[in-house]
Write a protein that binds this DNA or RNA. Structure first.
Lengths: 204, 204
DNA sequence: AGTCTTCTGTACCGACTAGTACACAAACCC
DNA sequence: GGGTTTGTGTACTAGTCGGTACAGAAGACT
């Protein structure tokens, strides 16, 4: 079944660049300038590759963006999945929003969130990308809602609570924090936003 | 001092278009597609003007955007100023966020908020516009903070409350709601987000 | 009438956009 | 060595970007 054993013998001339490293650089650029704000020339320069190599390795601009987005989800944005494993709904919110405050202001990375600011509004030609980001945002909101539903069943959230509403609220706060991060809010300021949410969190 | 009395006698060939109407159309376009996502060709078509007329009447693209932005602040976004006049901090939040839910989903207008999605992240060439929007966002956050400070002095917010933190939180929720609106959230869904905020609002 | 002033329409500018054709280089196989 | 396969570098495409030159049209003033 599996055709490739281990490194798989390279055929033909080998790549002169590290594809992983190049993708990381592309991700940073998209993260910083958004999908439309990043040009192929920006990318080739930052990735240290010329255009034909880029197209051969990653496909067109949209393909490359989607690959960068996937990498983002598995890397910088993995704190979301971790947060969902917290034992209580309140713990989930705390892990999620405090984690977000840290991720959104990580000095190693561009400010803010790729999924929020990658293509919030854009030319009609970029609509597929915009739509993809919409789906991703809906995706984590749904995951949070599901987790809250479980919390309700466990008596960990009041029976009167609406899981979907709370999840939408938490997602909105996260997205707002992302906007704030790109506007220059500090890590402490974002953590205090998270704290306000926790202070008002519904208890049994 | 005032040189212009009333309509001011027009000199030379009169305009063949209504500048107010044209600006309204430009605003709608920027609102929908963002600053970078809107091309001058899009604009001239939607405004029913050809390029030289547009440039003569409104200056370059950035000038036009700033004029549209001003109009936005005085028109669709004026609910913010009104909200600040509510008698209590809680009332301010309610008026602000419920008003936002309505404005962000007004079927007459594009979804979301121009100040949030007009140029959240963009090419370096559009940085002045991005920065202008950052300032506007900081502007209303500060206005809310000031209002909360007054509320504290009036005993309308607990003495332990931090006005700046609460204002940042409320602004973040608003910005998150704007993101949600562009993602297709309904008016009711956004109102329920506002309700969650009110449910958790600190009381004396 | 003529003149002055302003706006309109066409046709254009150079710069940049995403994407590619093609010749050549570098690895593998036999 | 030759042959095959794949990546690199240059140089180019057609189309779009924001912005403008210029000729003529439409009004007011004298």
């Amino acid at each position: 079944m599996a055709t490739s054993r281990t490194p798989a013998p390279p055929l033909g001339r080998p790549r002169a660049f590290d594809a992983e490293e190049a993708l990381t650089r592309a991700l940073r650029l998209f993260w910083q300038k958004g999908y439309e704000g990043t040009s192929m020339a920006d990318l080739t320069e930052a990735m240290g590759i010329n255009k034909p190599s880029l197209y051969a390795a990653f496909g067109n601009k949209e393909d490359l963006f989607r690959k960068a987005l996937e990498r983002y989800g598995e890397g910088s944005a993995c704190f979301i999945g971790e947060a969902l494993t917290a034992p209580t709904a309140r713990g989930v919110v705390e892990k999620f929003l405090v984690g977000a405050a840290e991720q959104l202001t990580n000095p190693e990375n561009p400010r803010g969130c790729l999924v929020v600011q990658g293509a919030l509004s854009c030319a009609t030609s970029s609509d597929p990308v915009r739509q993809e980001l919409v789906e991703r945002r809906k995706g984590y909101e749904k995951a949070i809602a599901k987790r809250f539903q479980k919390a309700k069943a466990e008596g960990d959230l009041p029976a009167s609570a609406n899981a979907a509403d709370l999840a939408r609220y938490v997602a909105a706060v996260h997205q707002g924090m992302a906007v704030q991060a790109t506007s220059g809010a500090t890590r402490q300021e974002l953590k205090r936003v998270a704290q306000v949410v926790l202070d008002g969190w519904p208890s049994k």
